[in-house]
Nucleic acid binder design. Sequence first.
DNA 1: ACGGCTCAAACC
DNA 2: TGGTTTGAG
Length: 672
Amino acid sequence: MPVARAETSDARVIAHVDMDCFYVQVEQRKQPELRGLPTAVVQYNEWQGGGLIAVSYEARKCGVKRSMRGDEAKAVCPQIQLVQVPVARGKADLNLYRGAGSEVVSILAKSGKCERASIDEVYLDLTDAAESMLADAPPESLELIDEEVLKSHILGMSREDGDDFKENVRDWICRKDADRREKLLSCGIIIVAELRKQVLKETEFTCSAGIAHNKMLAKLASGMNKPAQQTVVPYSAVQELLSSLPIKKMKQLGGKLGTSLQTDLGIDTVGDLLQYSETKLQEHYGINTGTWLWNIARGISGEEVQGRLLPKSHGSGKTFPGPRALKSLSTVQHWLNQLSEELSERLSSDLEQNKRIASTLTLHASAFKSRDSNSHKKFPSKSCPLRYGVTKIQEDAFNLFQAAFREYMGPFGSKPRGNKQETWRITGLSISASKIVDIPSGTSSIMRYFQSESTVPSRSVDGCVQDHVTITPSASEGCSEQRSTETQAAMPEEETGVTYTLHNFENPDKGIDPVSEKDVVSCPSNEATDVSTQSESNKGTQTKRIGRKMNNSKEKNWGMPSIVDIFKNYNATPPSKQETQEDSTVSSTSKKAKFSNSSHNSQVNQEVEERREKDWGYKTDEIDQSVFDELPVEIQRELRSFLRPNKQFNAGKSKGDGSTSSIAHYFPPLNR
DNA sequence: ACGGCTCAAACC
DNA sequence: TGGTTTGAG
């Protein structure tokens, strides 16, 4: 049976490293007097002492559990120390923990292929390191085995206490008659123990780890003995480990699929799953999932450790549960501004520290309408090219929101029927930046360019939006500045003056037809943001733009991301579509608008239109001269230097690097 | 529609 | 594709 052979032939050494109650450890490092005490990290405080997101092992002994409220924890464990998650801009700020996670990753990454699985989890492929050790200094040749190694748990090994236990571990690790795979695992045990000691020494954090032949088993093992311990899964122990394991404990089966296996097929343990043939599972769950299920039941998982140390996206979001749900546009805009500030800050860090640029901005929101019948419709997500700069992100985010909002409300949303205003609520907002690409090396001035884009506040239309909104009655009143960490109350949700009804979203000029409606949806900056918070100059050009019909439904692009598009083409496939050229061309004019800080909106917009049509159908081999002309000279030089040599060899799809999918952005035309 | 906030990936 | 869904910590 070919697949079974795949399993026994999987001689990789994979480790899963899991930080112990990570947030608590981070806080305890910052506040050493908390060490050893029952401690929990709590998020927000307004309601019943906030929610616990990390609990120390001392506190767990007292019966404190995750997903308890702070008050509850105090009740069962009065001595518990509650530490609040840092708050910035009225929302949880996880940067402290992200930074701490990066510390750990940078240590672990030195020993082999490393994948940052979450803020506090890492997978390592230690196969090479283990093979080297086996060749150079096999365990059996070692006279001294580190204490940390001897504390390892080896599944399937007899459980004896005290020093006997450690002797057994030593014997197992140094066994001469072990097969090659077990010897490799032994090397893995030694390496991981060393790594964990190093992490402790350099970060003061303890962690637990699992060592096995694949990710699935390693992950399973890392959770079996916590905290500060490691567990190894020899092949010989796989069957026994899995046979009695509840199906829902498996990595991808904690949700609906796992439930379906239980209720539809009566499968409760992984052992039960063994009874089903591959084809039977495929009949129920499709070809891919079926095969996958059949495999994992046997401990087979070919999933590779991705060599990725950095996140593929950055997000910032906040929920507004129950009575806190947002009910006015101005509060929505206020929170989007906060989220945008945070996101922009993190993008700047990413740029500075990792030399990466994100190119897509996405908005998600959740909402409900109570009065209407179809109140269950989902609030759609929207995305657009990401332009660097806080105010740009704020503006784009709000425009995305409005585009989605209008879609959510439907075409009748604008005119409240029967004089009854529709009651909608926003219960969650989040924005994220994705499609992050590396800046090619040797382009430091390009980086500076983006940095300045994000730090220099653009003083044209952008500022107006924000200024105006903070003046809005509801936003300015009661906004008692950072009175405490209780920023939850910082933003009043009650409408004081203006109440926005749906007609705020309707463009007076525009007869809503399906075509232009669609254009609008994909073209947030051109959206008729005819709200009271919108600047006059914007309003004029935007309404004008709206009326314009595109001769091509795959229209795209505004503004800034042209450089990013070049990078993407550089990193990925050659630009065979004219869209790429289109992007570059259009954005060049937008840059001109930026450089001349007296950019008049409608004028620029018109110019863009002309240029766009003129350049329609450019061949993409050449970058439009105007792109360069608009850029600072040193950037022009660097652009040329890294574009030229690349031209010939970017056809091959480098599949190994997940970030190299060919990306053709289809963006709306720009608005300024 | 009280667990809040992030992330990745499969899917269509 | 982008947008949705799922699942994870």
